[in-house]
């Protein structure tokens, strides 16, 4: 069973008012479910389908198209590491490997304590401050090994 929290419900009320067609709310609702549980469960898809008059299969179809939606558990912190051209030109591969080694995981994995998930991402649109990564909702730019050390060390 999946239920939206009370605060989510308040946001849903606002979201539904934005669109003349309920289905438009699918991405915001999926995002909301993910914010609540960390990832999107099949039960959440069923519930969202009910809210927007769509089949659960439809919800899953849309959900699986967009890479920011996780359908498996992720860590408390998710690092999205840009590996596209501008970051690559400035050594992101080395930094990504450095981060993976430091966390003792492979790219795509979550640390054993479920704290950090490390993902590679396509361009994050902060190219003139490359290399870049996104940690949950926050961008970290002009990365260096030292900066990565600092960032990772600051996580509780």
């Amino acid at each position: 069973m999946f239920t939206f929290s009370e605060s989510s419900e308040k946001q849903i009320e606002k979201i539904m008012k934005k669109y003349p067609v309920k289905r438009s709310a699918i991405l915001p609702l999926l995002a909301l479910a993910q914010r609540q549980d960390g990832y999107i469960t099949p039960e959440a898809m069923v519930e969202i389908g009910k809210r927007i008059d769509c089949s659960p299969a439809y919800v899953q179809s849309v959900c699986s198209f967009y890479t920011m939606f996780y359908t498996k558990p992720v860590g408390k912190y998710v690092i999205q590491f840009c590996i596209n051209i501008s970051c690559h030109l400035l050594g992101c591969d080395d930094l990504l490997e450095y981060t993976a080694n430091k966390l003792n995981i492979k790219v795509g994995e979550t640390t054993a304590d479920n704290k950090i998930t490390l993902l590679k991402e396509e361009c994050l649109a902060e190219c003139s401050a490359a290399p870049v990564m996104r940690l949950n909702d926050t961008y970290h730019t002009n990365l260096t090994r030292e900066k990565i050390d600092q960032i990772l060390d600051s996580l509780d």
């Binding site: 898809m45 089949s55 659960p56 299969a57 179809s61 699986s64 198209f65 967009y66």
Partner: peptide, 20 residues
Amino acid sequence: KDTALVMLNRGFHNEVGTFN
């Protein structure tokens, strides 16, 4: 009109499937 059969995933990983 029941969208029970859908495309899942994206790009090369596209596949025909159902909910769960």
